[in-house]
Structures are given as structure tokens and as C-alpha cells.
Nucleic acid binder design. Structure first.
Length: 112
DNA sequence: CGGTTTTGACCTGCGC
DNA sequence: GCGCAGGTCAAAACCG
């Protein structure tokens, strides 16, 4: 890690991600980090985008779907009804985290 | 020791 | 057809 500047702190979503790249997007003038789910059967990808001068404005974009249950989500949703929906549950928690920080920037990346 | 992270370079797709 | 942009991969270094 750099150990020299500021470490970006992303909202904990409950999944484990491995950073595999970072680039500056000239189109929007912001930085973008690329994360991949560490699961073997999980092809889910996560992208974090934040302003070059405003690291507080974080934009997280999830791509793909998790093929495994999220560990943290499971314990976090222990209060849920006995019926677990699996995928829908995961996104439910993520939406919670996003609405807390990235509601400023309006952008919907969802897939077609 | 293992695992993870970081930077650079490379590749592809699309636009004009 | 070429250029640009964005995205991904690889290797190396460092930490616990």
C-alpha cells in the first residue's frame, strides 16, 4: 500500500473483494478502483469511483451476481424472517449501505 | 509463509 | 483506418 497518502475507506458490504486495478477516468475526472469477489464460483465485480478532490463522495457499482451466500449478510440479517431469499437478500443489504453515502450522485448502473 | 496490495503495460471496443 | 478510452492482467513488494 502506499503508506504515504490517504487510504480510501469503502463501505463494508459484507463480501470479500480483491483490488485488481485502479485508473483515473478522464471522462468524469474521477478515480475508479476495480474489485473482484474472491469466491471461486462468484464472478461478481465491484467498482468504486470517487472524485479526485472529494474522497468522501464514493460511488460503488456492483456488476454481476453473487453465486454464494454472503457471510456478513447472513449474520447481519439474522433478524430477518426465516425465509431467506439468497440473492435478493444480498442486494437488500447493499442498497442499505449505498443509500447512506452515495445518494448524492445520481447514477444508475444496473444491467439491462 | 501466505495472502494481499500496488504500479505499469497491454488489450479490446467504439467513435469519427 | 486510426485514435482514444476504459478495462484487465501480470509481477513485485509488503504486511500479519
Amino acid at each position: 500500500m502506499d503508506g504515504r497518502g490517504f487510504r480510501l475507506v469503502l463501505p463494508e458490504d459484507g463480501y470479500e473483494w480483491r483490488k485488481y486495478g485502479q485508473k483515473f477516468i478522464k471522462n468524469i475526472g474521477k478515480f475508479r478502483s476495480y474489485f473482484k469477489c474472491q469466491r471461486s464460483n462468484c464472478r461478481a465485480k465491484k467498482k468504486a469511483e470517487w472524485s479526485a478532490s472529494d474522497p468522501s463522495t464514493l460511488r460503488v457499482v456492483y456488476d454481476g451476481v453473487h453465486t454464494h451466500a454472503s457471510p456478513a449478510t447472513e449474520s447481519a440479517s439474522s433478524g430477518e424472517s426465516g425465509t431467506s431469499s439468497s440473492t435478493a437478500n444480498n442486494y437488500n443489504l447493499l442498497t442499505q449501505v449505498f443509500g447512506d453515502r452515495s445518494s448524492t450522485t445520481s447514477l444508475y448502473d444496473d444491467h439491462p
